[in-house]
Design a protein around this nucleic acid. Sequence first.
DNA 1: CGTTTAGTTGAGGAAGGTCAATCAGCGTGG
DNA 2: CCACGCTGATTGACCTTCCTCAACTAAACG
Lengths: 250, 250
Amino acid sequence: MKVEHLDSCIVRHFSYYYDLTRKDEELLLELERSPTKVKAGTRLWEERDSANEFCTLSRGWAYSYRIMENGSRQILELYMPGDIIGLREFAFSQRLASVKMAEDGVVCYFPHQHVLDLFRQSMALTTIMFAISSRQQVLITERLVNLARRNAKQKLAHFLLETYQRLKQTQANGHDSFRLPLSQELLADLLGLSPVHVSRTLTALSDEGLVFRERHVVTIPDLKALKEMADFDDRYLIDNMRPLFNSHNS
Amino acid sequence: MKVEHLDSCIVRHFSYYYDLTRKDEELLLELERSPTKVKAGTRLWEERDSANEFCTLSRGWAYSYRIMENGSRQILELYMPGDIIGLREFAFSQRLASVKMAEDGVVCYFPHQHVLDLFRQSMALTTIMFAISSRQQVLITERLVNLARRNAKQKLAHFLLETYQRLKQTQANGHDSFRLPLSQELLADLLGLSPVHVSRTLTALSDEGLVFRERHVVTIPDLKALKEMADFDDRYLIDNMRPLFNSHNS
DNA sequence: CGTTTAGTTGAGGAAGGTCAATCAGCGTGG
DNA sequence: CCACGCTGATTGACCTTCCTCAACTAAACG
């Protein structure tokens, strides 16, 4: 049952795409050899640092961001346990964004070259890596659409729905509520709004009975209603590579 | 000198990342075996179509887009000759966006499986594919920042600078002007603005002597001034994988 | 030489930003 | 156990940017 290996977030994440062989799992576990505890607010790296390693996130949330000339901050990606941080910079020698922990967590660094080893040694892992990369692109694209084309209420709702769904895909939680360890300021920087307006929007959503938030727990009583309101279509989160594998691999 | 192969946009594009072997080139040329002429406005595919092929763009510009519930359109990516269209959907069985030709052009379809063949047969091509994918992610991310954090004048300026730079990297053109075969409506859908405001912004930029546009030709008389104004930093366009290769491959 | 298509210009309006004051929770130290 | 101060959230007043609608002009095109 290879239960033991599912302790590893990254193995669990990769398994989501395709059944891994024993050897694949061993290769993956290589990436998580040096777990490091990091406290909330720790900066894993900074824009312009030299980039020659990735990082797997084993516990806690993290986010990448850019500081603009005028001092405002745009958050680019939210990372959750099982995600690989820094994939974007594979073809670059410099970091293009900074990364910070949103809460206490555990990360494992590994050099870019390890990915080349993966490419060399396993077709399945290569394909999954590529799938993960393209999935990430899809997530960013959806966020772009969200920022460009929706109003504040929809932006916020859409983000909450995306997060809820992402969590459901990895951590099984049947409820209509989830933990969201992010301040309103962070939400603002994520959605391109001002903190003030996030607050207003959140109370508006609450007044309409669509979203409730207390402390760091968010509840969505009527998923369907919220999805409708936010123009949320989860197809972009539901990727599936099996057809690709089945039609070609043994 | 393998000059003959540089006729192929895609070979030229890949060569930008790393020197290809003869065999690599042959493999790549496989992808361009069925060139098809397409007229401006042709839709290559539509959201929700089943996705099992990519497409290389040999001539002309194309763009992917999404239509929102309220009828507005967001353009996601601009493709230029040498680009691969549809990478995003590698891990998906459905198209997540539609793609249209911005002008007359030539494309070549090839099935997703061909990429798996590449993975199987060439480390270099695998790595380059991955680099291209991560570069595309970087481009989208920068566009996200552009949409979320800059005002109309900066958005437009930033987009023009990015396009200018992208063209310079593939087509050598020494001048301070380039061809931009896009209507203002298209620019609006690209930048999340209204066509009206694009027009105003363009005249504002012209009044300030920063950008001139007549017909489909754009001139940037003072690159440095415009970059400053737009908060444009070209690091995100200058990727370089050589260090990665050199430190590990033969 | 009309007719379509793309761009320009003006006036009014809405969404969201900014600034500032206030409040609530909470950890810290006395 | 309480006072203090910190951070994060809320609320109000006012302002800016960009949108919308609409009329108009300029090319492009048969």
